[in-house]
Write a protein that binds this DNA or RNA. Structure first.
Lengths: 192, 192
DNA sequence: TCACTATTGACCGGCATGGTCGAAAGTAGT
DNA sequence: ACTACTTTCGACCATGCCGGTCAATAGTGA
């Protein structure tokens, strides 16, 4: 997944894969008919990995948008840390959708995830309790400001932990910091 | 530059380059000794292209941070539209710094731009008139919120115009929309 | 000992690569 | 028209990596 995430299907090298995996070339083609079959296997495996995370996201039900966003981002971040390569592998799929001939099953997984993600995001907007928002700014813009702040913070964090090993990352301070941002956002965008 | 921006130095193909340029292969190696020399030429050319933009950025002097940010982003965006491939070419350099043996001159250009960009950003923070900010939120956090909003908006715009030809983009509505975001930010993060 | 599985890495044909070069076309002065 | 020179082309080359094969061997358990 690391190789495919970095190079995409076409430019990924099976030689590098077996080298990084520390196995002989033969093994790869003993267990997988060819490069594409390996890729399809990984796609399905990757989506299976995310199953639990997605289920958690779907279960979110707070009407307070910021509260819901906070939980969503928490799931995303811990998920990213837990299966970093899986996340990056799938992100890559969204960039070059058609560079590999995906199996039907893979396509199914892919479109299902896309749809679910859209649903989660949509639910956040549509079920947001806009009566909590200050009334002198359109609610859709407030939603956007919050999203930008959340995304920006997430990006900042990921930038800071890039290169570090998952095990040596201490998340406590980030979570704490995160809370202060959320309370700020409530302060400026909610009533009172 | 388009080819190098997309593939990086090593994976860029001189065959694709001459094909896209509509010239014979011989011409490329008639005017450039080899691939690397072409690359170094492009690096220096690219930085020369940005010279004016950078000068404009350095000239910004508003003490009102949002005002300054607005102008900075305006320069960035129009610059991106004017020399899209140049921007993407240079962005790529920051990703894979060492994949090509840059000439001394190229290295000099590269580090100078990096430094200047850092200076511009730093100046925004250090010379910001924090007395304009509301006092119940630390000023460094306000700066961050504004930055996230600005970056988020810029990203949204770029996502919307991706794929479009430069000539067929109408910027007026974006600029107008931009202004409303800025006034919102002032409303929520400035005093009163 | 045997039947079977797991594993290896040298090796294959094929393809794209960066780079070459002889030929031809273009240009300008006489 | 002839000449000297520059510009342009694309077929061609050696090389290296590609995905994939396979004969050989090591491991395993009855």
């Amino acid at each position: 997944m690391i190789e495919f995430a970095e190079y995409g299907f076409k430019l990924a090298s099976t030689n590098r894969i077996v080298q990084a995996a520390g196995i002989g070339k033969g093994m790869l083609f003993y267990y997988f008919k060819n490069k594409l079959e390996l890729y399809n296997f990984l796609v399905e495996y990757a989506f299976a990995c995310l199953h639990d995370d997605v289920a958690q996201m779907e279960a979110l039900s707070d009407s307070d948008m910021i509260e819901r966003y906070r939980k969503l981002n928490k799931i995303k971040m811990t998920g990213y840390i837990k299966h970093r390569s899986v996340y990056e592998f799938i992100s890559r799929m969204y960039l070059n959708e058609d560079e590999a001939a995906l199996s039907e099953e893979s396509k199914r997984c892919f479109s299902m995830l896309t749809q679910k993600h859209a649903e989660v995001i949509e639910k956040i907007y549509f079920t947001a309790d806009v009566s909590l928002f200050r009334s002198d700014i359109p609610s859709d813009k407030i939603i956007r400001y919050v999203r930008w702040a959340m995304d920006g913070y997430t990006q900042d964090i990921l930038r800071r932990v890039r290169g570090k090993k998952t095990s040596e990352i201490d998340f406590a301070p980030y979570v704490e910091e995160y809370e202060t941002y959320l309370s700020d956002l409530k302060k400026v965008f909610y009533k009172n």
